[in-house]
Nucleic acid binder design. Structure first.
Lengths: 210, 210
DNA sequence: ATAACATTGTTATTTTTGTAACAAAAAGAA
DNA sequence: TTCTTTTTGTTACAAAAATAACAATGTTAT
């Protein structure tokens, strides 16, 4: 079977990036775009762009490139859920707030619906447009709101506990920003990102450049 | 040639993660670790762990695993620079502060030495232990301090300008957290990370799970 | 002492990802 | 019209990454 479910992981990442660029284009009144333009905006190869677009079953127009609106809609049908998905941010520290602020009114299909923290100064307040609940209410709120994705931005020592609570609440996907490897399989899809690793990687390549 | 410079990119990322786990082990008084333990802590395959460790020319002891201290030191010789490297954070918003706080006193070989912002309320103050300078002083401070790496955490519309300034100041590596693809080649090594893409990826896999 | 086991180190194989090559066809030039 | 150029769509190839297979060998059990 060659359906959308089998798209390569890297292609999914790039689709998200293509759409970001495409939405910028629309804002600027640009209605067509060539594969090589998309490619150079993202520092990748034009062939890869065409290949990705082929894989999702879209097609462009010879010598006119891709219709920006149509392509971005098409990407939407691939990566968005029809009814949208709700996201919870667990941990309203600097990083949590960064994400909440960043998403404010950005996507309609991926909405941050709740934040959780243990700090009484934050609980029951609205931060960056998002209601902050007590961590103890997590299961209840997640179920009631139908939240499917959790973003963990708590301090490292609270990470495992937060993940466990999310899983208990029936969460389906977790994006973990703490440097603690979580164990949530097979209940939830897990994506981990560690800023230190990224920075150390940059440092390594800086050091080893001729 | 099969030197350290030719290590696969993914291996570099994993080395950073191995070290993180190894340092945790040391703190907990665990002095030996098996490849399968390291692997399960990072959700990867034990063979990959052994292979990575082989590639850096380290070796363990049969049936005793790897010496935690020796291995973590060895990883240090690969990914750290002997004299260390200094990092600047450009943009002291929520995300910038998250990174500054996070690094406070963590690594000795990778030190955040300065932050930059345009907000007068932040300039010339010390935030999370780091001196915040005016953006206009960027070139001067970076050269004077010998800063080699820049982390960009400004709002999207300031991203290109910030990158340009960093390059002008002779920066060698950039970690870009804004959703704007920068063009800094061939002056600096560039690593980009977009939180929206990560979240959309999680959303996609949540949606497409059986 | 011998057998069974556990674990590393390494080579071989498979899978995934990226790139090159090129046919097809529309647009413009001669 | 016919030729050249440009750009897509697709297949073929190459590179990178991950996994499997297995030899080597020390350890424990019998």
């Amino acid at each position: 079977m060659n359906s959308v479910k089998n798209l390569p992981e890297k292609t999914i990442e790039r689709l998200s990036q293509y759409r970001r660029v495409l939405l910028d284009c629309l804002r600027q009144g640009k209605y067509n775009i060539y594969s090589h333009e998309l490619a150079s905006l993202l520092h990748i190869n034009p062939v890869q762009v065409r290949r990705d677009i082929m894989l999702i079953g879209h097609n462009g127009t010879l010598r006119k490139g891709y219709d920006v609106k149509r392509l971005s809609d098409m990407i939407g049908t691939i990566i968005d859920s029809k009814e949208g998905q709700k996201v919870a941010v667990v941990g309203v520290g600097n990083l949590g707030r960064a994400i909440m602020t960043y998403f404010q009114g950005k996507r309609t299909k991926l909405v941050i619906a709740a934040a959780f923290d243990t700090d009484p100064a934050k609980v029951n307040r609205v931060i960056a447009g998002i209601r902050c609940y007590a961590a103890s209410e997590m299961e209840e709120v997640i179920r009631k709101e139908g939240i499917t994705i959790g973003v963990i931005t708590v301090p490292p020592d609270k990470a495992a506990e937060s993940a466990e609570k999310l899983v208990m609440a029936g969460i389906r996907g977790i994006l973990n920003y703490t440097p603690v490897a979580l164990n949530v399989e097979p209940h939830a899809y897990l994506e981990e990102y560690d800023m230190v690793t990224s920075l150390e990687k940059v440092a390594f390549f800086v050091k080893n450049r001729s």
